[in-house]
Design a binder for these strands. Structure first.
Lengths: 135, 135
DNA sequence: TTACAATTGATAATTATTATTAGAAGGGGT
DNA sequence: ACCCCTTCTAATAATAATTATCAATTGTAA
């Protein structure tokens, strides 16, 4: 894999963001630095980078994929309202894949724990809206 | 919500299947009984039925949604190869949402544990193919 | 039985993503 | 520096899954 300039910028933008960005969010950011880049290039390189294990790919519930600068195994929570994704501190030792394995004859290669809820920003907004309605 | 005939058949087919079917799989089945039904109706009713809490909606990793006749809280494993989904026996008491809750100010409404791997049928097929290659 | 809302089938539109393709660019080996 | 080979890119088309639109139909309830 060649570390091209587009690849480099995509990677840097994702890492600097410290967020779980989707391909199109990243595309918007990268375009500011490299205006002629194509959305397909962003998709392609995110795929390549995640295959190479340099970034993580998050396949969150029925939504756009998001990409993660942090590749150590960890779990996530996402907001049902604004779809942002955050890391959670969940003790992965609590889960023992070997125990589940026998279940249906699956050969288990991984697992993830996914919490969902409403993030603090969305709750604030909701409250503000409700207060507004009262007036 | 009116229990229309299409609604009834969709529900019955899902329940009788004892599987985690996708909208189009269910469409194929329902069409055999009610040939003029529209795919949109299947989508619409699966949505309605799951909103009403009569069936469950499975939003598995970056894939087609699947629907579940079994609404009691439980977790799933899916096959990376053929994309089938099975239930797993996972002790949900191991996870304490309240502990995670404080983390980022989220109000947690649920969580799921999702295993992935290769199902026994796909492993058999893989083995068969390998044996074939040897000859 | 009339009137109104819910539902349907057909189809168009949308969203997210992947595939295609022709051309450009990087990096040896000579 | 020049050629060759592979990788990569931009632009665009294609695809897959789902949702929206809308006119026609059906069920329900006054």
């Amino acid at each position: 894999m060649r570390m091209t300039s587009q690849r480099e910028i995509i990677l840097k933008e994702l890492q600097d963001s410290h967020q779980h960005l989707s391909a199109d969010e990243l595309y918007e950011r990268v375009k500011k630095i490299m205006p002629r880049i194509s959305l397909a290039t962003v998709y392609r390189n995110l795929e390549t980078l995640s295959e190479a294990g340099i970034i993580g790919k998050l396949e969150i519930s029925g939504r756009q994929k998001r990409f993660d600068f942090d590749i150590h195994p960890h779990d996530h929570i996402y907001c049902l309202q604004c779809h942002r994704v955050d890391n959670i501190d969940f003790d992965r030792n609590l889960v023992n894949p070997a125990e589940v394995a026998s279940d249906k004859g699956y050969q288990i290669t991984g697992y993830r724990v996914e919490f969902k809820g409403i993030c603090s920003a969305c709750r604030r907004n909701q409250k503000k809206r409700e207060d507004g309605d009262k007036k």
